[in-house]
Design a protein around this nucleic acid. Structure first.
Lengths: 188, 188
DNA sequence: GTCTATAGTACGATAGAC
DNA sequence: GTCTATCGTACTATAGAC
């Protein structure tokens, strides 16, 4: 009924939103089909099992992030960091969605092994990008921090993912306070 | 069959473990009854609805934390902080359980309103204790950090909750790196 | 306080028509 | 590529015996 496989892309886009707002275990074929105006079985046609769908959501996010870091490769360390902050802030504004890394981690024992592996790959990708950003930024005098870049990267990624979640409980100020603290501590 | 309400306490203890490992939505009466050697209906006798059970788990955790901070009230700021770190590290060693705050936050849209409110109360309690610890510790020269105590507290709590989750994906070193970074930055 | 039995619901998944 | 119809399963929850 559709030109090319437009529906397939819509399913991934909506599925991603749902995982970020209710989590993979609570994601259902009915939510997807009803919101897209199609039927249960139509979604199964594109993604036979829930595992297929969940895995594709993670792989797609990985591709997007790779595109993102390539796109911003020429910016300054601070500009890169602020864009990363901004992307996370957008999740907060989209009805308090959390990031896929946090969602995959908190539901870790409820997702198939293939998704556990994909989530790990995704997180390693993000973390390595962060380590490189911090290392380069410090070397060039843009950032100031004690200790190893790997530990600083771990601290920042964990704080951002955790902060997004906790903002659901006690409000967006919590997340903004975290970002401001990170900025304050990193500034020369 | 039991003296007093021993079963009721066992249900809360096991329920707490299950929420911390699989989350409230994936927690089931069957897991509880089978692991306690009783039947489905017996659990319903003590906690008629799942909401009753989930709420009691959070309230119980709140009470425990209140007991904890009273118990350590005479220790030094660093000793208090290290005991807090230790409690979180224990979750990691218990088959990678996460904290109740992180679990409640990531499943926020899947838990009843009464639990959302209880989780908020719990988190406010923890955060306020942290703010006071950081404020006092800095005033007395034990801690060093830039910015407001409230933002530093937000950063630390989010990093610990997020770090516990992310350690499931990429290993315990991730969490330990976060704690070491926090120590390094806080040390005078 | 614990049991058996079951109602009622929601879900993932498949078969087969169009 | 989408539909209707349905199977099998897992879950929350309740009624009533002991």
């Amino acid at each position: 009924m559709k030109a090319r496989t437009e529906t397939k892309e819509k399913i991934i886009a909506l599925g991603t939103d749902l995982v970020k707002s209710v989590g993979y275990p609570s994601l259902s074929y009915q939510q997807i089909s009803s919101q897209l105006g199609i039927k249960n079985a139509a979604v199964h046609y594109h993604y036979p099992s829930k595992e297929n769908l969940g895995l594709e959501i993670l792989i797609s996010a990985c591709d997007s992030f790779n595109g993102f870091i390539t796109y911003i490769t020429d910016l300054s360390p601070w500009e890169k960091l602020e864009l990363f902050f901004e992307n996370y802030r957008k999740s907060l504004e989209s009805d308090h969605q959390i990031c896929l890394i946090g969602a995959s981690a908190s539901d870790y024992h409820q997702i198939p092994e293939s998704m556990q592996a994909a989530a790990k790959d995704y997180m390693v990708l993000v973390k390595n990008w962060f380590i490189d950003l911090l290392e380069t930024g410090r070397k060039e005098g843009h950032f100031v921090f004690k200790g190893e870049p790997v530990n600083k990267a771990s601290l920042m990624i964990a704080a951002m993912a955790g902060g997004l979640q906790q903002a659901r409980l006690i409000g967006d100020d919590h997340y903004d306070g975290i970002i401001n603290q990170i900025r304050t501590e990193l500034r020369p």
